[in-house]
């Protein structure tokens, strides 16, 4: 497959996408992973991302939009650098998931699907993330943090703040 000229992705990601489009029996199978990996790099699925992925997979942009709007992890607007996803589904709820969510709202000063003014954190209430036996659990980007309390949550948030250059 010919590589895409003027790709909006980094060379590494572009090369990964070149390969991804070739491994499946049908090229289109690369669509969902590609969207997710593109979001990882760009921060969200922007219009140029849609256009390039459509081009890479010989799809209409509409096809790409139909698919991307189906999956709840994919977003078309930017989120914070660290997207805090608090599970409030049944197992987490029973062990304080909502308390944790409210705590995050107050600590970060933002609501569901909002981003802090400095762009560092965004907050999202999410459905079950598959950490029920270690509830309540939170995912920050792809990292799991489990068996949390509001105090532990503060430490988690601090650990991300600490990653930032002073």
């Amino acid at each position: 497959m010919a590589t895409i000229p003027n790709s909006i992705f980094t060379p590494t990601t572009a090369a990964r996408f070149d390969k991804l489009a070739t491994i499946y029996p049908v090229k289109r199978s690369a669509l969902v992973p590609m969207l997710l990996y593109a979001q990882d790099e760009i921060g969200y699925v922007s219009d140029p991302v849609v256009a390039e992925i459509a081009q890479r997979l010989d799809l209409l942009e509409l096809d790409v939009r139909n698919v991307l709007s189906y999956y709840s992890m994919l977003r078309t607007v930017p989120a914070g650098k660290y997207n805090v996803q608090v599970c409030t589904n049944i197992s987490c709820m029973l062990r304080g998931g909502f308390e944790l969510l409210d705590h995050c709202k107050h600590t970060l000063g933002i609501g569901h699907k909002e981003t802090t003014p400095d762009g560092l954190f965004s907050l999202e209430e999410v459905e079950c993330i598959g950490a029920c036996c270690w509830a309540p659990a939170v995912q920050v980007n792809y990292d799991f943090h489990d068996d949390l309390t509001p105090e532990k949550m503060d430490a988690v948030l601090d650990s991300y703040r600490a990653r930032e250059p002073k």
Binding site: D47, L60, E61, L62, D63, R65, N66, S69
Partner: peptide
């Protein structure tokens, strides 16, 4: 032509045309 698609899911599902508003 494939100018119409289904977007979102569940009770938010909606029929959408091929040029989104922002474009």
């Amino acid at each position: 032509i494939f100018a119409l698609g289904v977007q979102n899911r569940g009770s938010s599902s909606v029929i959408a045309p091929n040029i989104p508003a922002q474009l």
